[in-house]
Structures are given as C-alpha cells and as structure tokens.
C-alpha cells in the first residue's frame, strides 16, 4: 500500500511540475462544485488575460449543431506565467478541450482544471482548484 502510494505520489511529480497551487483570491467552494466535473471541446472566442483570474470563452456545438458559449476561469496571469503559460498560449480560434468544475449558479461557467491546447499540449490551469488526489 505504501509502495503504491509512493509510486503514485512520485508519478505525480510530472504533473506537479506543470501545475500551481490554488491561487484563488476567493472561495472556490462558494462558486464551484468540485463534485460536478465538466469536459467540453470548443473554439476559443475570447481570452481575458487579466487579474485576478484569466478567463477564456469557447463556443461549444452540441449534436444538433446548436452553439453555446462557455466561460472558463483560470488562475492569475502571474501564476499561469510561472507555470509556463504566456498571454498567447490561448488565442481566438484555437480548438481546446477543457475539463473543470461547474459553477453552482447554473450559468455556463466552470473553473478550469486542465486545458489541452490546439497544439496538443496539456497544461493545468493554475486555477482555484488543484489536484489533491491521495
């Protein structure tokens, strides 16, 4: 059990290198539900590279071809930059896959935990919720 746990922890080092701690300025639990994961793929329509949380918006098409616009919250630009992002990492028109936690108020909003960029590079989001799997 301990050896397996250690292996899991050390295996997680690679993930940690690309991730940041929770850098929220507000309570994650008040806004998002970690028990409501969501994963969406879409085209980036807007990027707000601003404090306290960078945000981006994607158009997601459903099976009927209907388009909905979704907002995803990232960590602060400083946190993202220290984790290897730049303000050009996400651009309008990019296709991305995002997974994260749904907002509690029912809006098309989620806190991004992981983003796969158009070039296939997987990055974490330096967001309000960080990996804490044990």
């Amino acid at each position: 059990m301990k050896a397996k746990l250690l292996a899991v922890l050390l295996g997680g080092v690679g993930l940690l290198l690309a991730s940041m701690p929770a850098l929220a300025h507000h309570s994650f639990a008040a806004e998002y539900d970690a028990a409501k994961p969501v994963t969406l793929t879409g085209t980036v329509t807007k990027v707000e590279w601003m404090n306290p949380h960078a945000r981006f918006y994607i158009d997601v098409k459903d099976d009927q071809g209907k388009v909905a616009n979704w907002e995803f919250e990232l960590g602060s630009p400083n946190g993202l930059m220290r984790a290897g992002w730049t303000r050009n990492s996400l651009k309008q028109g990019d296709t991305v896959t995002v997974s994260g936690s749904l907002a509690k108020d029912g809006s098309n909003l989620a806190n991004a935990r992981q983003v796969t960029l158009a070039d296939g590079k997987r990055v974490f989001a330096a967001s309000s919720e960080s990996e804490n799997k044990q």
Partner: peptide, 28 residues
C-alpha cells in the same frame, strides 16, 4: 520524500515551480 524530489527537480527546471514543493490545497 515527494517534496524533496520535486524540490531537487525544481532546482534543475527552467520553469519556476514556486509552490510545487508544497502539497496542493484543495479549495473547499
């Protein structure tokens, strides 16, 4: 152990991992 390992790797990494040496906090 993990922290030590990460800290060593972090010293070699070009990326800054300021608090990767700290166990992440799960909000809420």
């Amino acid at each position: 152990t993990l922290v030590t390992g990460v800290a060593v790797l972090g010293g070699l990494s070009l990326l800054s991992i300021p608090a990767a040496a700290q166990a992440p906090v799960q909000q809420g």
